[in-house]
Amino acid sequence: MSAQTAPRPHRLRAIARFREAGISIFILILGALVALRAPAFLTMTNFKDILLNISILSIVALAQAMVIITHGIDLSVSSMIGLVAMMVAFVMKQSPEFPVITVVLLGMALGAALGALNGVVISYGKVPPIIATLGTLSIYRGMVFFYSQGTWINSFELPRSFKLLSKGTPLGLPNMVIIALVFAALVYFFLNYTRTGRDIYAVGSNPEAAQMAGIRRQRVVFLVYLLSGLASGLAAVLWASRFESAQTNTALGFELQTVAAAVVGGVSISGGVGTVPGVLLGALLLGLIENALPLVRISPFWQLAAQGLLILIAVVVDNLIARSAKGK
């Protein structure tokens, strides 16, 4: 059935790749500019600092990206982090001899349980994701207060082994960075090399067709929220370990950053689109800005405004590119 002229596949594919290349170039230019103004930027310590800062963000943003790919959103990640961090810190205070690895597993299990509740309400209860997670955002945060009765856990109440969980460098890089890299690699393989991973894209791309193709849509949707909870649980343990405390306002407002990293990294809020490298680059860009502002003596108060501007630029540029591709 000859003569079907495909509409210039190479250019279109190039556009799909544009996002990662675009952010990479943007990151390089930004990095170069900052390095010119502040040579301290180009030191090993500073790089390590940036990586340390974006490790937790990357983990949660990757999970957030999976949720957004199914055309959902999880606003409750910050409260899940806050709650799990508090519970884990309580356990560590109570029994400091608890092996650190089991604490990590415990945190992930607790997070997964919270995520499963989101998942059930959204997939089987058919509550719109934004409403359900808006609700659990305040429910889980309220539970932090109820749980701790307003108290918090300080650095001296936590065992040394627990604090080293994030910062120790037995393998050269801080553990936390390695954990984030391993997590990213796992998500990459999950999304690209398993059927369930591909089902996530299919469900976000065309939910009805997914159902007709025999994909268990509800199960896939349930799963991404469960994973989002699990990632938040992991992030919570790392958070408590890194900042050596658990407070009632731990990670407050963090949900915004995770969505920002995903969106800046090219995950489409209408579902079906997004890659692991893109999200990591998105997180890196956010981390870079956070790191660079003080170095170039711009008031850190600009950080939030810069994040917001970045989100807006990302969606506007995407839109312009999509339009020019269609018009041609």
Partner: peptide, 11 residues
């Protein structure tokens, strides 16, 4: 859009 301006305006 409003997530972006949420951060921007507060910023």
């Amino acid at each position: 859009v409003t997530l972006g301006t949420y951060a921007f305006y507060r910023g």
